[in-house]
Amino acid sequence: MPAVANAGFVTYELRGPVAHIGLNRPEKRNAISDAFVEAIAEVVARAESEARAAVIYGHGGHFCAGLDLAEHVTKSAIEGVRGSRRWHEVFSKIEFGAIPFVSALHGAVVGGGLELAASTHIRVADRTAFFALPEGQRGIFVGGGGSVRVARLLGTARMMDMMLTGRVLSAEEGERCSLVQYLVEPGTAREKAHELAEIAASNAEISNYAIIHALPRIQDMSKEDGLLVESFVSAITATSPEAEKRLRDFLEKRVARLRAPDQT
């Protein structure tokens, strides 16, 4: 299926089981406006209806430079609250949706762009990527879920440093700080993201759903509550017909065993 434009802000393409969602405002470094958020919401819903996994990437030289400040500066306080809550709602549809999302990051991954990336389940950065949270220097605060999602990835102390001082992290620093799970050469992030999305798309749907929904919530629970929920989720997934087939395929040697990374 060829790429199609959606309200001028995003492109959408289906590659087998994987949907590709492209942020398409390169002249603004893909800065996010309210209309942009609505376009993202629309294609995320479409991806869930016809794909098994999705990739989010940016057209042009950057993934996303964050909030469209020209729009934000004219908002009243209540408009700002409503806008922030809408970002939360849309980004939560990515984080707690029906399919895995992989983000392919390059260039600026700043402010709201980092908040968007943090809502995806796997993040791949090429070596041109850099990460920043310049809200402190702009006289504002994160509003797209960063105080929860980004802080959990970075830790509160590192996030506070970035917001207070304007510190910019390189791609290599981003990997060391757990902002991204994969670091690749320039221009290859989308290809790697697609490869990972295809693998995730081949999993049992019930397993993917459990990983996406249960794992983050267990982290919010006490140790004993988390272990109890783990037992129930483990039992439910293991009793699905697909799980039985996959386990039998493994036991009867119809699928290859895992090997160490340096083995062929």
Rank of each mutant, 00 (worst) to 15 (best):
P216A: 07
L183M: 08
L169W: 14
H20N: 03
R176K: 15
F141A: 10
A77Q: 10
E38H: 13
A47S: 10
G187E: 08
I206K: 12
P17G: 02
A39W: 13
L251W: 09
E244F: 14
A98C: 01
Y209I: 07
E230V: 11
S231Y: 04
I122C: 03
A47Q: 04
N6C: 06
I122H: 02
T188D: 04
R82F: 11
V43R: 07
D68C: 04
E242H: 11
S76D: 11
E185Q: 07
D161E: 15
T165C: 02
D262I: 11
A77H: 12
S207Q: 09
G155H: 05
L23Q: 09
A235F: 13
M159F: 05
A65Y: 01
S178E: 10
R25G: 04
V148W: 09
G145P: 01
I211M: 08
A260W: 12
F250R: 12
V10W: 00
P100G: 03
V142K: 08
H62N: 15
H194A: 09
E195P: 00
D225T: 14
V148L: 08
E48A: 12
R257Y: 10
N203S: 11
K192N: 00
K245W: 03
L169N: 00
V168L: 05
G80I: 08
Y57F: 14
L67V: 13
Q219E: 10
S234W: 07
A214V: 15
Y182I: 09
G8V: 13
L105T: 03
G58M: 06
K93Y: 02
E252K: 14
T165S: 15
A132D: 01
M163Y: 01
V180Y: 01
N203Q: 12
H59K: 06
I122P: 00
L228F: 15
H121A: 11
R149E: 14
V148P: 00
I140Q: 04
R257I: 03
H20S: 04
G58S: 06
S234N: 07
I212L: 13
P134M: 09
G145N: 04
G97E: 03
G145L: 05
S202F: 06
E205R: 15
E172R: 13
A129D: 02
I236D: 01
G145I: 10
P17K: 13
G155T: 06
V110F: 03
A104R: 13
L69M: 13
A51W: 10
L247Y: 10
G22M: 09
A53P: 01
A35K: 14
G83I: 04
